[in-house]
Amino acid sequence: MTTVIETQVQYDNTYMMSTTEGYMTQEDDWDRDLLLDPAWEKQQRKSAEIVDGNLKMTLGMIWTIILRFAIQDISVEETSAKEGLLLWCQRKTAPYRNVNVQNFHISWKDGLALCALIHRHRPDLIDYSKLRKDDPIGNLNTAFEVAEKYLDIPKMLDAEDIVNTPKPDEKAIMTYVSCFYHAFAGAEQCKMCKLGSVCVND
Rank of each mutant, 00 (worst) to 15 (best):
Q72G: 03
Q72N: 11
Q72P: 00
D73V: 01
I74V: 12
V76I: 14
E77Q: 12
E77G: 14
E78Q: 08
T79W: 01
A81V: 03
K82V: 06
E83M: 12
L86P: 00
L87Y: 10
W88Y: 11
C89F: 03
R91S: 07
R91M: 11
K92N: 09
A94K: 15
P95K: 00
Y96L: 00
Y96P: 13
N98V: 03
N98R: 13
N103T: 08
F104H: 03
F104K: 03
F104P: 10
S107R: 02
K109S: 12
D110Y: 04
D110F: 08
D110L: 06
D110I: 05
L112W: 00
A113D: 08
C115F: 08
A116G: 09
L117D: 02
H121K: 15
R122P: 01
R122A: 01
D124S: 15
D124H: 06
L125I: 11
I126V: 15
I126S: 11
Y128P: 05
Y128H: 01
S129V: 02
K130L: 12
K130R: 14
K133Y: 00
D134E: 05
D134Q: 02
P136G: 04
P136C: 03
I137T: 15
I137W: 02
I137D: 05
L140K: 08
N141P: 05
T142P: 07
T142E: 14
F144Y: 12
E145L: 09
A147K: 09
A147V: 04
E148T: 07
K149P: 01
Y150M: 03
L151R: 11
I153A: 05
I153F: 04
P154V: 09
P154N: 10
P154H: 07
P154G: 05
M156H: 11
M156R: 10
L157F: 02
A159L: 12
E160L: 07
D161Q: 10
I162C: 15
I162W: 07
N164D: 06
T165H: 08
T165G: 11
P166D: 13
P166K: 14
K167L: 10
P168G: 13
D169P: 02
E170C: 12
E170D: 14
K171W: 07
A172N: 07
A172Y: 07
I173L: 11
I173V: 13
M174A: 15
T175D: 14
T175L: 13
T175A: 15
Y176C: 07
Y176D: 02
V177Y: 07
V177W: 07
V177N: 10
C179R: 13
Y181N: 03
Y181H: 09
Y181F: 14
Y181P: 09
Y181K: 04
A183L: 09
A183N: 13
A183E: 15
F184N: 01
A185C: 02
E188W: 08
Q189K: 15
Q189G: 05
C190L: 12
M192E: 15
K194T: 07
K194V: 12
